[in-house]
């Protein structure tokens, strides 16, 4: 064997320049967050889960929203006094489960397939990877939810013309507000997915977060627990979503744009925790 690994080589090696290093013809241009975003967008659009979950969500929002409006119109129900546009709530509530699933999968599938190792080898900054994922996922879900919610609201107004009226503020809440809230819920799921690193586990946790407060609340009838009960109901995710549509179960609690602030806080904590953990943990 013609080995260049002679003892002499060894002494020379540390002094760069004595040995010819390989120079790639590919130009080196500094990679930025934008490149990470491009990468995450490719990832998101190239898996079937994205089409499935978001497709099912759009279908649920459209059929339930338009369907209930048609039913009510056919039965000539009197909706006077009811907040307009609120019929969109059921579809969004069910659709949120799809967003939770996709949010968790966005990071969970990286762990279950082992792709996370390749991802972090290509981009060692954990914060950048997570930020890129969050930006891409949030934007996609926000656009799709807002557009669908707007379409549903327009249909409802047309179908139930005369019976319902809504102010501009109510329109903004029921479209952009809902889009922001659902996309935020997706980010919370992404954060929980990154913390738990286990898809099924994280989805279960998130479904618990959505449903548990309402399931638990009825059992807190003792006087001492009255406050806890009210808190659970008021701050449950379904109730906060209702608030965006102007129909809450309680008269107090977050209303108008306040649910979005609550969600913002939760997302900040979850993503902050995820970055801290990702920086510390072995992959």
């Amino acid at each position: 064997m013609t080995s260049p690994a002679t003892p002499q080589d060894r002494r020379q090696a540390p002094e760069t320049g004595l040995l010819s290093f390989y120079e790639s013809p590919i130009p080196i241009r500094p990679a930025t967050l934008g490149d990470a975003i491009a990468s995450e967008w490719t990832k998101l659009r190239s898996v079937r889960a994205t089409v499935w979950t978001l497709g099912v969500m759009v279908a649920l929002m459209l059929t339930l929203g338009v369907g209930t409006a048609l039913l009510l119109a056919a039965n000539d129900t009197n909706l006077a006094g009811e907040p307009a546009l609120a019929l969109g709530l059921f579809g969004v509530l069910l659709g949120s489960l799809c967003v939770i699933t996709l949010g968790v999968l966005t990071i969970g599938s990286e762990y279950s397939t082992g792709m996370i190792r390749t991802t972090l080898t290509a981009c060692p900054s954990r914060a950048r990877v997570l930020a890129a994922k969050a930006i891409v996922f949030f934007s996609l879900v926000f656009v799709i939810t807002t557009v669908t919610a707007t379409v549903v609201a327009v249909f409802q107004t047309v179908i139930l013309s005369g019976t319902v009226t809504a102010s501009g503020g109510a329109w903004a809440l029921a479209t952009v507000g809902v889009g922001l809230y659902i996309a935020g819920l997706g980010l919370l799921s992404l954060g929980v997915g990154a913390i738990v690193r286990h898809t099924a586990g994280a989805i279960t946790i998130m479904i618990g977060v959505v449903l548990l407060p309402l399931v638990l609340a009825p059992f807190m009838f003792a006087d001492a627990l009255r406050g806890v009960q009210r808190f659970l109901v008021e701050y449950s995710i379904p109730n906060q979503l209702s608030a965006l549509y102007g129909t809450t179960m309680t008269s107090t609690g977050p209303s108008a744009w306040e649910p979005l602030l609550v969600m913002l806080g939760l997302v900040a904590v979850a993503l902050g925790g995820a970055v801290a953990l990702l920086n510390r943990r072995d992959v």
Partner: peptide
């Protein structure tokens, strides 16, 4: 260390883009 649901091309493309 690749996502099985993605094509070979896309698996490599997302890596290329990030760098």
């Amino acid at each position: 260390a690749m996502h099985g649901g993605r094509s070979a091309y896309n698996n490599l493309l997302c890596l290329a883009q990030s760098n």
